[in-house]
Design a protein around this nucleic acid. Structure first.
Length: 630
DNA sequence: TCACGAGTTA
């Protein structure tokens, strides 16, 4: 028994396997049990080394009296450097939900004159980071310097991390500049924290200057661009990474780049990453986050069937998986299936969260199921305990106002317990456009001008409403107001990605575009197609043309050059017969383009998927998945 | 004791 205890005391040797544990090794789980045991050992003349020193520190780390008692006991009975024994509870406290107890223990250590080692410092710094306690962090940094640990690279990185976590990027930079050695972690730390603070330019220049980059450096840079809404730049950095070919993307990289693909609609890159993940065995290992990212990418690139395939193949799912798929189906106008999935997940015992409910509410909204949606909104709080947030109210406003209940929608906005934002009022404005209610639109725009004065979209919707009603003086008035405020209409564009070699890649069109290599061919084909459309009874719908033109012909000319029309014609020219055409738009699709897409899908026997600002339209056989309700 | 840096849904 003595010998086996002796070996378990030594910190170098591994703990004995549980089966070899002596059956009557004294254990204790609090200081008073320890004291009883201590007394018992003294009385029965047994050695105090029967007590496990690490158990002593872990049980006695939370109060000053037990600390002092344990410290005395350890000093007299054990030869180990005490600090090593105290580091262990210090580490677990700094990892715990209340890291401040690590700081309390640290001050007891200091008062007991125990000299911290590098481990002590790093654990305390970790607690400071978690608590964003800059004051204590600075004290520990000073101590690190005083104790001569400056050249410990790992510890210096931990100090840098502490400054960054406490929001003191100035100190982080200062430390970075005077560090005698830096490694790739040092660079990554400063770079990611600059990026997190929104200083993408500094982060990028640091990234460009790095003497060496790890897979984390690349992932962090890509992630920063995705996070700040520049997925195209994120994809550029990823392309650089592939060109260099030094470092292979890992699972985290793939997840990040997939979200860039989702945001920018880069289906080709997304598909390639899917194949890559398969080859690398990422999917076999059942990485749920990666599969979730794949579902999201396919959904947002207009391939809901492919998304469903990934979803079905998954052995393990999380609430994120379900929410992504439900929201994706809703976005694609497949509301019934979204609702079925919701029942499925609750049947399986998954607890839906706020995001799940948003997806379901979207589904109701797209299906125009007013009463069901209302009931669901109520049950969300009552049966599932999920508190409605502003996005949920936004969905309800959408549901009500698109169903024509504009007054109820406005009432909801006034009664909601959260201060309504521009999105909520903008949603009501959208409903006003559908139901041609200029009066309420004016009220909504009144609020919007205060909440989000530089957003051109709202003015455009209002002037659409006036234009549809032929109120050209009011249209002009809105345009003057925009000019006066310096608001400019966002130019519309549509993009289409073509697979493969020459002519492959993303092609972007703006309205009236004549810069494309094949512009002449595009316009000629479009003219022919137009003839056929007219034969089938198509008449241009100029109600949404904003310009006050005397001649109807002029309006029609403007309409025919809308970017999505050019993109779809180019798609017809550049993809094999029968292939699906996928288009992305930065604005809402207009009525006339919606009609044209339906007809083209029928004439050319093609599936056309258009992603606009809010949702997807899938045109097939002359119909749209939105049921003309959008 | 074995420390610091990247990733999914609205």
């Amino acid at each position: 028994m003595q010998t086996s205890l002796g070996s378990s005391q030594s910190p170098q040797s591994p703990p004995p396997p549980p089966t070899k544990k002596p059956p009557n090794l004294p254990t204790f789980s609090n200081p008073s049990q320890l004291k009883q045991l201590h007394a018992h050992l003294l009385r029965s003349n047994q050695p105090l080394t029967l007590l496990s020193p690490s158990q002593i520190t872990s049980v006695c780390s939370s109060s000053s009296s037990s600390f002092n008692y344990a410290n005395l006991l350890l000093t007299h009975s054990f030869k180990n450097p005490l600090i090593v024994l105290w580091n262990s509870p210090l580490k677990s406290l700094s990892d715990s939900p209340s890291p401040s107890s690590a700081l309390s223990l640290f001050s007891l250590l200091r008062r007991a004159d125990l000299l911290p080692d590098t481990f002590t410092c790093s654990f305390v710094l970790k607690a400071c980071s978690a608590l964003t306690d800059l004051i204590t962090g600075k004290t520990v940094h000073a101590l690190v310097e005083k104790l001569g640990f400056r050249s410990d690279l790992f510890l210096s990185n931990t100090v840098l991390h502490m400054y960054a976590s406490c929001g003191s990027l100035g100190n982080a930079r200062l430390l970075f500049d005077k560090m005698p050695n830096r490694d790739v972690v040092t660079w990554n730390l400063l770079m990611t924290n600059l990026a997190k603070a929104g200083d993408l330019a500094s982060a990028r220049s640091l990234f460009d200057d790095m003497p060496e980059r790890s897979v984390r450096s690349w992932t962090a840079m890509i992630s920063a661009y995705v996070h700040f809404g520049d997925p195209d730049e994120a994809l550029c950095v990823f392309a650089m990474m592939e060109d260099e070919g030094v470092i292979a993307p890992n699972e985290a990289t793939v997840v990040t780049v997939l979200s860039a693909c989702a945001d920018s609609g880069a289906l080709c890159v997304g598909k390639r990453l899917h194949a890559y993940s398969d080859r690398k065995g990422f999917l076999r290992r059942g990485n749920v986050r990666l599969q979730n990212a794949l579902i999201d990418m396919y959904v947002k690139c207009g391939c809901v069937d492919e998304a469903r395939r990934v979803f079905t193949s998954m052995g393990e799912r999380t609430v994120v998986t379900w929410s992504t798929m439900i929201g994706g189906l809703a976005m694609h106008g497949q509301g019934e299936e979204a609702l079925e999935l919701f029942s499925g997940m609750t049947r399986l015992g998954f607890q839906p969260n706020g995001v799940t409910f948003l997806g379901v509410l979207h589904a109701y909204s797209h299906m125009g199921l007013l009463d069901e949606g209302r009931r669901f909104f109520k049950s969300m709080g009552e049966d599932h305990g999920v508190v409605a947030e502003i996005e949920h109210y936004g969905c309800m406003v959408d549901l009500l106002s698109r169903a024509g209940r504009l007054h109820e929608a406005r009432e909801l906005i006034e009664q909601m317990p959260i201060e309504p934002n521009s999105v909520v009022w903008g949603t009501l404005l959208g409903g006003c456009r559908v139901h041609k209610n200029a009066e309420m639109a004016e009220e909504a725009i009144g609020r919007l001008v205060e909440l989000d004065p530089m957003n051109d979209g709202y003015y455009v919707v209002l002037s659409n409403i006036y234009a549809e009603a032929g109120r050209w003086a009011d249209v002009a008035h809105v345009r003057r107001a925009m000019r006066a405020r310096g608001v400019r209409k966002t130019p519309g564009w549509s993009s289409i990605e073509i697979d493969g070699g020459s002519g492959g890649g993303v092609h972007v069109f703006v309205a009236g575009d004549s810069t494309h290599d094949r512009a002449k061919e595009i316009y000629e084909t479009w003219d022919e197609l137009l003839g056929e459309l007219r034969q089938r009874g198509y008449v241009a719908d100029t109600r949404e043309v904003l310009l006050d033109m005397e001649v109807e012909e002029e309006k029609v000319k403007v309409l025919y050059k809308h970017s999505e029309k050019l993109a779809v014609v180019f798609g017809l020219l550049s993809t094999p017969k029968g292939a699906t055409i996928r288009i992305m738009k930065n604005l809402r699709v207009c009525n006339d383009c919606h009609n044209v897409m339906k007809l083209i899908s029928k004439i050319e026997n093609r599936k056309i998927v258009v992603r606009d600002r809010n949702r997807f339209h899938c045109f097939e056989g002359g119909l749209c998945s939105c049921g003309d309700y959008w």
